[in-house]
Amino acid sequence: MEGLTVSDADLVVFVHPSKSKRASEAILRELSSHLFQFNKIFGGVLLAYDIDVASKNAKILPGLNPNSGLRLKAKLLLFSPEPNMLLEGKVVKLTPESIHVIVLGFASAVIIDEDIRKEFEFRTKHDKEVYRSKAHRRHVIKVGTMIRFLVKSFNKEILHICGSLRPTNTGSIHWLDKDFQEISLIDRSGTKRESKNEMKMQEHSVVGGEEISLGSDKIKKSKKRRFREES
């Protein structure tokens, strides 16, 4: 899925002197407070981190509320979706006007009817709402389906995504991946048939009205040629 990046960062975490004996806990608590929030400094939503304290010698910074500054290196997993990226999420609600999705378990996304391609038709079957493709009957989107959709916009404050199912490479991930595998198998089988036909054509050729088998030393005259010689 697009929108996920791993970033290396050199950070300085400020710890109150009273917590200097438990600096590691203070650092983890500080970084954890930024989880699942958009951070302008990081340039994305912090999902996970792995830290390595570069120096255990804290530098006390002067001020009204003096703090100790600890330098550390960190690997950050960030979520920063941009327009035209492809994201994946789980469908949690369907209506005739919209499809509601949860991405990575925390970000909400909505795809309104004008951004759902005309191929999909909303139906209620056995008291369950579904979007079914009119072109491919097995391509169905229902609650619980994992879908791939295009990002139109991303609200960083409330972590809300506006998406689109207009491109043909969007929809149910299960169906898209299965369809891609079937196309690949067809292409491979077609290539095999073509190569076999080419081999057969190479094994047999006609020269001057005579059929010559390249795989054998025997040369057979065609029936038409033999009939002419007898007459």
Rank of each mutant, 00 (worst) to 15 (best):
L64I: 06
S7T: 14
L94F: 05
K178V: 14
A9D: 09
L87W: 02
E30L: 12
L86M: 12
D113E: 10
A23D: 00
R193I: 06
D10S: 14
S205N: 09
S195M: 14
L47S: 04
S32G: 03
E230R: 09
G208D: 07
H100E: 15
S20I: 06
V110M: 07
H136Q: 15
D50C: 06
S108M: 02
P96H: 04
K220Q: 10
N197F: 08
R29L: 15
R225M: 12
P17S: 02
S164R: 06
E121L: 07
W175A: 04
E230L: 14
R226T: 09
N65G: 08
A26Y: 00
M201L: 10
R166H: 02
M201N: 13
V206Q: 10
S7Q: 05
A135D: 09
D177Y: 15
Y131G: 00
E210D: 04
L47F: 02
I186Y: 14
L104Q: 08
A48S: 08
G44M: 03
G171C: 04
L185F: 09
S195R: 01
A74G: 05
I183Q: 05
K56S: 15
I60L: 12
N39A: 00
R225L: 15
E230A: 06
S195W: 03
F180D: 10
E211M: 14
R193V: 05
S18K: 01
R226H: 11
L159C: 04
P96R: 05
G144C: 12
V13C: 00
R166L: 11
K40S: 00
A109E: 08
K90A: 15
G171S: 12
F120W: 02
S153W: 04
V53G: 00
A107S: 12
P83Y: 04
R226M: 15
K156L: 02
R148H: 09
E114R: 07
F106M: 08
V206N: 06
R123I: 03
F149Q: 09
D179M: 07
N197L: 09
I158N: 07
I51N: 01
A26T: 00
K128Y: 00
I183A: 10
L76A: 07
V207D: 11
L86I: 15
V15G: 05
I60F: 07
E97V: 10
N67D: 01
D115V: 15
G44D: 03
K218Q: 11
F180G: 04
V151G: 01
E194V: 05
S108N: 06
V101E: 05
D127S: 00
E2R: 01
S55M: 05
G3W: 11
V6N: 11
I186A: 06
V92N: 02
L11M: 03
T124P: 00
R188Y: 03
I158L: 07
F149D: 06
K90N: 15
E2N: 07
M1R: 02
S24R: 04
H139I: 10
E25I: 10
E30T: 04
H136V: 03
P81L: 13
E2S: 13
L4K: 07
E25G: 13
